[in-house]
């Protein structure tokens, strides 16, 4: 019977916030000693305790007064946790870089469709060629230009893609920043190197 009563409480259709607090009330009682209180909550919790201290001091004069920490009511805790979640959901606001990155990634993707088809057909064939043949092939201006475009655009596309993957899986902000920088540096290095090699061959 007891459990059924609880179920009913859990199920009560209610507005978002009411619903969560209803669910939480049933479990919060059991976990009143829940020590995993966020620091944010603790700071807020201390306030009612201090108020008590002031009142007591007024009545009893000089005596040292020990005030026990008043347990925060489950309902209030639940409310505070919700405001924490809300604060976290808003975060630091929008970074305003999403749309720009998205745009570059799609534009490079579109450019890569014809370039990749050209590349797949011609370069896999060249991988078995002699150095002289490969050098002559790359020295022809049309090939050199298309190859340069392909490498630079593909690297740009790859760096953004890898950055997105790192952002998905590496949650430590510092580590993520370092990884992204390393990826960008490698991309830049490869691009500059390949273009320099192509210019060297063409001249």
């Amino acid at each position: 019977m007891n459990d059924k009563g609880k179920n009913r409480q859990d199920d009560a259709p209610a507005k978002a916030s009411e619903k969560t607090s209803a669910v939480d009330a049933s479990s919060a009682q059991k976990s009143a000693d829940d020590s995993a209180v966020d620091s944010h909550n603790e700071a807020r919790e201390k306030q009612p305790a201090n108020d008590h201290q002031d009142d007591d001091a007024g009545e009893d004069g000089n005596e040292v007064i020990k005030v026990e920490r008043t347990p925060t009511s489950p309902a209030l805790l639940s409310q505070l946790r919700h405001s924490n979640h809300y604060h976290q959901a808003r975060g630091l606001g929008a970074g305003r870089a999403g749309a720009a990155t998205f745009r570059v990634q799609r534009l490079t993707a579109m450019a890569l469709i014809p370039l990749a088809i050209w590349f797949a057909v011609s370069v896999v064939r060249m991988s078995t060629a002699s150095q002289a043949a490969a050098a002559a092939w790359l020295a022809w201006p049309v090939n050199a230009v298309i190859m340069a475009l392909f490498i630079v655009i593909a690297l740009r596309h790859a760096v953004i893609g890898l950055q997105i993957i790192l952002e998905d899986y590496v949650h430590h902000e510092g580590l993520r920043a370092v990884c992204v920088l390393v990826v960008k540096a490698i991309g830049l290095l490869l691009g500059v190197g390949a273009v320099a090699a192509l210019i060297h061959l063409a001249l």
């Binding site: 606001g93 929008a94 970074g95 305003r96 870089a97 999403g98 749309a99 990155t101 997105i164 998905d168």
Partner: peptide, 14 residues
């Protein structure tokens, strides 16, 4: 739209 233009808030959708 301003509030959604964020690498994480919106563009984690792949």
């Amino acid at each position: 739209l301003d509030a959604l233009d964020d690498t994480f808030k919106l563009y984690r959708c792949h």
